[in-house]
Simulated scan of single mutants.
Amino acid sequence: MMTNANLAALSAAGVSVWLDDLSRQLIGSGELASRMSTYSVVGVTTNPAIFQSALSDSSAYESALTEAVAADRDVDAVLRALTTADVRDACDVLADTFRSTGGVDGRVSLEVDPRLADQTEATVTQAVELADVVDRPNVMIKIPATAAGLPAITEVIGKGIDVNVTLIFSVDQYRKVAQAYIAGLERAAEAGHDLSTIHSVASVFVSRLDTEIDSRLPEDSALRGQAGLANARLCQDVYEELFDPSGRFGALADRGARPQRLLWASTGVKDPAYPDTLYVTGLVTHGTVNTMPFATMEAFADHGVLEGDTVRGSAAASRATLDALRADGIDLEEVFALLEQQGVEKFVTAWDALSDTVRSRIDEIPAGS
Rank of each mutant, 00 (worst) to 15 (best):
P259W: 08
L185K: 13
L55A: 12
E340S: 09
L234T: 10
S246A: 15
G102L: 08
L322Q: 12
T296P: 00
D172C: 08
W351F: 15
V335M: 07
L252H: 03
R35E: 04
A9E: 14
D254R: 15
A60C: 08
E219W: 05
S37N: 15
G282K: 01
S200F: 06
Y174H: 15
N47K: 05
L283Q: 01
A183G: 13
L263W: 02
T277S: 01
T101L: 07
A70E: 11
L217N: 04
E155F: 07
G14L: 01
V177N: 01
V204F: 15
R175G: 08
S318C: 10
I365T: 10
Q236S: 14
I198M: 09
D89A: 15
V41I: 13
V139E: 03
Q226P: 03
A315D: 08
R233C: 06
T310M: 09
S58N: 07
V128D: 08
F294C: 00
L278E: 03
T101G: 07
G329P: 09
I141H: 04
A33N: 13
D194E: 11
Q226Y: 01
A222V: 14
A85Q: 15
S266P: 02
I27W: 04
F169H: 02
R326W: 07
T310P: 06
L79R: 15
S59V: 10
T38I: 02
P144K: 10
E240L: 14
L278A: 04
S215Q: 09
T166I: 08
A317H: 04
I153R: 02
S56C: 07
P114G: 06
P259M: 08
L252M: 10
G308N: 01
R319P: 09
L10I: 11
G308S: 06
V163Q: 10
A81S: 12
I198W: 12
T281G: 03
H199D: 11
V165Q: 02
N164R: 03
I182A: 04
I50L: 00
D162L: 05
K176L: 04
W264F: 02
G160F: 05
A222D: 14
Q119I: 05
Q236P: 00
A70Q: 08
S58F: 04
V108G: 06
L283A: 00
A85G: 14
V133P: 07
R319D: 12
D210K: 00
D352L: 06
S59D: 14
D210Q: 03
D105V: 11
T310K: 09
R216Y: 07
R359I: 03
V133M: 08
F205D: 01
C235Y: 09
T310N: 07
G329C: 05
D302N: 13
R115P: 04
V124F: 10
T123W: 08
A12F: 11
Q179D: 14
D302G: 10
V104K: 15
R35Q: 11
D271W: 05
N47F: 00
D57F: 06
F243H: 13
R187S: 14
E240S: 13
K346V: 03
V112P: 12
L354C: 13
R233N: 02
A77G: 14
V133G: 12
H199F: 15
Y279I: 01
D57Q: 14
G103Q: 05
R35P: 03
T288C: 03
R175Q: 08
V69R: 07
A54E: 05
D302L: 09
L130M: 09
